[in-house]
Design a protein around this nucleic acid. Structure first.
Lengths: 341, 341
DNA sequence: CGTTAGCACTCAATAGAATAGAGTGCTAAT
DNA sequence: ATTAGCACTCTATTCTATTGAGTGCTAACG
């Protein structure tokens, strides 16, 4: 028993119909709506086979069939035709994104919003995991007698600019520059994780010798690095979940929204995806609470290391072809922008 | 017919019980749980009076009573005893907040989170409305040959530090300093709103004369200011709403969460509150979708102008005494920190 | 021999009827 | 003025009947 042409056609019809209507699909509906050239009875036979093969499920004996995760997988891999985004929409999109964002975080954050608006699903953007990236430059810039801004630039293009308050006053600028020099010399090329440790353990003493005023800068800097959250998530369209009947159960909706608040888990889930645009469906997600969901994720690279992610989260009955179409367009624009940097 | 001692006592008991249990309160329950010294029948009579006076409502004839907005108002104004926060908790709280945040946004953002954790309600923090505040200082700081950071400091203590990319290269530093000087001279003391306009209309040309390289800086700066959202909201504990039975209806939960996404309306709602800690109950909120909610809002001032807000949003059946207790403590710590700045 | 019409069967969803129980308002006694 | 007693109201719950969409099986068909 193999997947002949007709079975594939029927399966495709069922998946598409279920994506559209969210109702179990029956043989009658199927033969009426899609002209498959065979009678409902024949379709029923085929459906029974497809169920046996694990592509379809019945909520109960007298209901139509719904696709299994396996069916969605087959669908996205072989059956689906990616919907191309309309030309007008595409140029509007480009225009929106191209407003040259100087910082990666902003670009991703904004893309997430646009993506959510276009797809009407929930989207997540993850900015580079800053602690693993390497320090390129650190600058201490005096603002007034009591404040400095420390500009921290990493190889992944992330820029942090914390304002530090030095209650005792920052004193002589030349000292500041001197310290700046030492920090750069000692820390350049190290990951921020290492920088954090070095600051705490070694440099503290070294720089202290230099200027007692600096006693306060290093701990402040350390504290700032310590506080940086490695999982900055930008969520958009979270309430879209209410539009889907499969989440019209309060418990399900709650569990979805609560899941989104588990930033660490969500980011693990997204970061673990493959190159380019990848799709994970239902039970393919290792994260327990995401078993009812599918993710379409785009990974962005700079210098061959992944630095950003953009993801659409929705029911397994997601409109994959639409989402992938939009995602493809957006991610190619983002890649363009990243290259031009 | 006036509110004698006994009526007040009964009303207080009803409000408290309803806050605790979220069930209409009947005369029997009332006389059993709270020793009011009178029989259920007497209580029934008093309740009938209280209903006539608009303090109580009956969901239906054979149900107990629930408090009206008017009753909650009376309760918070006269009957409630503010729950003091436990000493241990208070010192932990202080410790958490005092990690000297140099930037107001951070302080408020963090306070919002802590407040939500302690109260188990949804909280909103609103940072200063930056466009209305006045420019204190602007600095253009070279980072590398193609990037500068423009540090914008306002009188309300907000600091913006956008990274600007100057594709043509920034050229000579002395020119940068010169432009910096001009910008400061011309723009200091103006609101950022005005600065935005001035940049677009007048300064463009003036500075252009100076250096063709600067042609790009001004538009970039303008764009940045333009993009600044005047309503930066920091939400926390949004899913807490699912813990309250009055929102266990999907439509209500959805409408609550959707309401929170209307940033502009929410901020209007919060910003319109009075000095110090103020409470607005149900229909007192002019914002349609907030009619089922109550807000407890703390307003923070610097130099006599409001620059930050912290708000708890929950059902009208909110545990006011607990929330106000916690809010009071947090806001006094925040005020301390703002003064020390 | 694959396809299809016909039909009995299944099961969720919906509507209707019966019951239980919490709470009220009124009346009459204390 | 307060309270016990009681009839009454109305929701919530449970149970039953009905409807209808959809299936699987069988037998007939081309």
């Amino acid at each position: 028993m193999d997947l002949n042409e007709r079975k594939l056609k029927i399966l495709q019809a069922i998946v598409q119909d279920y994506i559209d209507c969210a109702e179990p699909v029956g043989s009658r509906t199927l033969s009426k709506k899609y002209n498959l050239g065979v009678s409902p009875a024949t379709i029923r036979n085929e459906m029974a086979d497809l169920e046996e093969l694990g592509f379809l499920m019945q909520p109960h004996t007298s209901a139509g069939r719904i696709p299994s995760d396996k069916a969605y997988r087959l669908y996205v891999d072989y059956l689906m035709q990616v919907k191309k985004i309309a030309a007008i929409q595409s140029s509007q999109l480009k225009e929106k994104l191209v407003r040259s964002f100087s910082e990666i975080e902003q670009l991703l954050q904004y893309s997430s919003r646009v993506l959510s608006e276009l797809t009407q699903y929930t989207t997540v953007a993850i900015a580079p995991q800053i602690k693993g990236s390497k320090l390129k430059q650190i600058q201490l810039i005096p603002i007034d007698s009591e404040h400095i801004i420390s500009v921290i630039i990493t190889d992944t293009g992330v820029v942090k600019k914390p304002l530090l308050r030095i209650p005792g006053g920052i004193g002589d600028i030349s000292v500041l520059m001197r310290v700046s020099g030492i920090l750069n010399e000692k820390l350049r090329g190290k990951t921020l994780q290492d920088v954090e440790e070095l600051l705490e353990k070694e440099l503290k003493h070294e720089v202290f010798r230099f200027s007692s005023v600096m006693e306060t800068i290093i701990p402040e800097l350390f504290k700032t690095l310590e506080e940086i959250d490695d999982f900055e998530l930008y969520l958009n369209g979270t309430t879209n979940i209410f539009n889907f009947p499969e989440f019209s159960d309060l418990i399900k909706a709650k569990s979805f929204l609560t899941m989104l608040e588990e930033k660490k888990k969500i980011s693990e889930l997204i970061i673990s995806s493959g190159e380019g645009i990848s799709i994970s469906i239902g039970a393919e997600n290792f994260f327990e609470q995401a078993r009812d969901c599918s993710l379409v994720t785009a990974t962005f690279k700079v210098d061959n290391s992944a630095i950003g992610w953009l993801s659409v989260i929705g029911p397994t009955r997601m409109d994959y072809s639409k989402v992938i179409g939009i995602m493809g367009q957006i991610s190619s624009y983002i890649n363009e922008l990243l290259k031009a940097r």
